[in-house]
Simulated assay, not measured.
Amino acid sequence: MTSKENRELIEHYIEAYNAFDVAGMVQLLHPDIVFRNFANGELNTETRGVEEFKMLAEQSSQIFSSRRQSIASYSAVVNQIEVQIDYEGILVVDLPNGLKAGDKLQLEGKSVFEMTDGKLSLIEDYS
């Protein structure tokens, strides 16, 4: 895939994410997708395969009334693409960390994407 095609794949994934379109997200994934989420330098979530990813995505979509990832910049690193992300979401549930329903969550971070056979095969989110 060309760099342009990779960027379009990532943009379609983020559009589906922002729209709470789990089916749209899943159709962009390689069957062996690995997803990892890191917060404050520590791995707190990992899934392997489309079904585990889909279950996590469905659970996560129930936490927010709205959410938006915005791409700030792209950079290529070896066989991966790093995307600087601005994130904003409004909670609909209270979280164990003290955030309450109605609170706005704002984060800056990055996502690392790797592609295999024209699909996303690795997604790592860092905040």
Score class of each variant (00 low, 15 high):
Ser61Glu: 03
Ser121Thr: 05
Asn97Leu: 09
Gly89Val: 02
Ile123Thr: 05
Ala76Ile: 14
Thr2Asn: 14
Ala76Glu: 15
Val22Pro: 08
Phe113Ser: 01
Ile33Tyr: 05
Val34Cys: 09
Gln27Asn: 13
Leu120Ile: 13
Ala39Leu: 14
Thr45Arg: 13
Ala39Lys: 14
Tyr13Leu: 04
Val26Leu: 04
Val50Asn: 10
Ser127Ile: 04
Ile63Leu: 13
Asp32Val: 00
Val22Arg: 13
Gly109Thr: 04
Ile81Gly: 08
Ile71Lys: 13
Ala23Gln: 15
Arg7His: 12
Thr47Ser: 02
Gln84Ile: 08
Gly118Met: 06
Asn40Tyr: 06
Glu58Cys: 05
Lys100Trp: 02
Leu99Lys: 14
Thr47Glu: 06
Asp103Leu: 01
Gly102Asp: 01
Lys104Asn: 12
Gly89Trp: 01
His30Met: 07
Ala57Trp: 04
Lys4Thr: 13
Phe113Arg: 01
Leu29Met: 14
Ile33His: 06
Thr2Arg: 09
Ser111Cys: 06
Leu28Gln: 06
Ser60Leu: 07
Phe113Leu: 01
Glu46Ile: 02
Gly49Asn: 04
Glu124Met: 09
Asn18Gln: 07
Lys4His: 08
Ser75Glu: 13
Glu114Ser: 02
Asn6Val: 12
Ser73Trp: 04
Leu105Phe: 02
Ser60Cys: 08
Lys54Met: 11
Glu88Arg: 09
Gln62Thr: 15
Ser61Asn: 15
Thr45Phe: 10
Ala57Ser: 15
Ala16Arg: 10
Gly102Val: 03
Gly109His: 06
Ala72Thr: 12
Ser65Asp: 13
Arg36Met: 10
Leu56Gln: 12
Glu82Gln: 09
Ala76Gly: 08
Gly24Cys: 04
Val83Met: 05
Ala57Arg: 13
Ser121Gly: 06
His30Ile: 07
Phe113Met: 02
Ser66Phe: 08
Ile10Asp: 09
Gly98Val: 07
Ser61Gly: 07
Lys110Pro: 00
Arg48Ser: 09
Phe64Gly: 12
Val78Gly: 10
Leu91Ala: 04
Lys100Arg: 11
Lys4Ala: 14
Asp32Glu: 15
